[in-house]
Simulated assay, not measured.
Amino acid sequence: MTVTALIVDDESPMRDQLRARLAEVWPELGIAGEAANGIEAMEMTARLKPDIVFLDIRMPGPSGIETARQLYSQSHVVFVTAYDQYAVEAFEHGAMDYLLKPVAADRLRLTCDRLRQRIGKPPADIDQKLAALAQILERGQGAKPQQYLRWIQAQVGTSLRMISTKEILFFQSDDKYTLVQTASAELLIRKTLKELADELDPDEFWRIHRSTLVRVDAIVEVTRDDRGRQMVKLRNHPRELEVSRNHASRFQQM
């Protein structure tokens, strides 16, 4: 019997990446289909009856957590997400395992080994899942839940680039895209500045303008130009960034 899986993620490059990784670690696994949101995932699970659903958490419409409530009794659910603060809630809603993006091959191989052992068996009791999670955390093998975004995903041609937030100097947005600026590269993403402001550590990234978030430790100095505006100078980058009046209190001593 061929074991089948459904991949659910609102970003096509992430679906492609996971499909490629699965082909490496479990070449016999059949990919029954791909879904871009929770509604598609529920419809395709009912129609295709996959053994496994690899499920993103943050998606438009029903979240991965909400979707898992409908799917965990039909398929083995594995969460794949960039945010590890959902770990306990994921297990509470029937996830068999939990993977962080970008998915490491060794970690995915371990998950696939666990799945092979579970295929054909009913979903484990949720209390057992939580007990197993507690044991993992006690042994120090589970990551402590983090509140803030650690990686940015940017499409570069046909490839997906993963950028650590520690590399980023600033974000700047317009109506459709957000510019991601590092010391060596300039990339565009579709995530809005409001989403980024909610997801990034506010002690590491400050909003200095309605269209600009800057990494605090990239700031070299703040000066005033001949029009009296506060301007931020950055390390390893020639561009100066304007501080709007609404955010000037960040630098009150000037």
Rank of each mutant, 00 (worst) to 15 (best):
H93C: 10
D175L: 12
G33Y: 13
G64H: 08
M42V: 09
V80F: 10
R215P: 01
V77F: 07
E199C: 04
I168E: 07
D16G: 14
T192E: 08
P122N: 13
V77C: 06
Q147I: 02
A20Q: 14
V103T: 05
P27S: 12
G142W: 10
V216Q: 09
S73I: 00
V88C: 05
Q172L: 02
S75D: 03
A154N: 05
E66Y: 04
V180M: 03
F54D: 05
L137Y: 10
S164P: 08
V77K: 07
L193I: 15
L130F: 03
L29K: 11
R116G: 14
P145W: 07
T182M: 01
K194Q: 14
P238C: 11
F54A: 00
R224L: 08
H237V: 03
I219E: 04
L188N: 01
Y148K: 06
S159L: 08
Y86D: 03
R58V: 13
P50H: 13
T212E: 05
T192R: 09
N236Y: 11
M14T: 09
P60K: 03
P62I: 11
L48G: 01
F54G: 03
V103M: 03
Q85R: 15
A104Q: 15
T111V: 15
L6D: 06
Q172A: 11
Q253L: 07
A134W: 04
D97E: 09
L108R: 06
K121H: 10
R19G: 05
M42I: 12
V80T: 13
Q252V: 01
K49P: 00
P202R: 09
I39S: 11
A104W: 03
L200N: 07
Y148R: 04
F54R: 10
A131Y: 13
R245S: 08
S63A: 05
Q181F: 05
F171P: 06
V8D: 03
S184L: 05
P238F: 06
P62G: 01
E242H: 01
P13N: 13
R21K: 15
A248G: 08
M59L: 10
N246T: 11
R114H: 14
V78C: 02
L55N: 02
T45C: 15
T67Y: 02
E240T: 15
E92Y: 10
A32E: 02
R250N: 14
A68R: 12
K101P: 03
R150C: 00
H247W: 13
R150G: 08
E167T: 04
Q141T: 05
T45Y: 13
L18V: 08
Q230N: 11
E43C: 04
R161M: 05
T67W: 02
R19F: 06
D10Q: 12
D56K: 06
F171A: 00
R235H: 13
R250I: 10
F251C: 05
K191E: 15
R229A: 14
L108Y: 09
L241W: 00
R207L: 04
E40W: 10
N37M: 00
R190F: 09
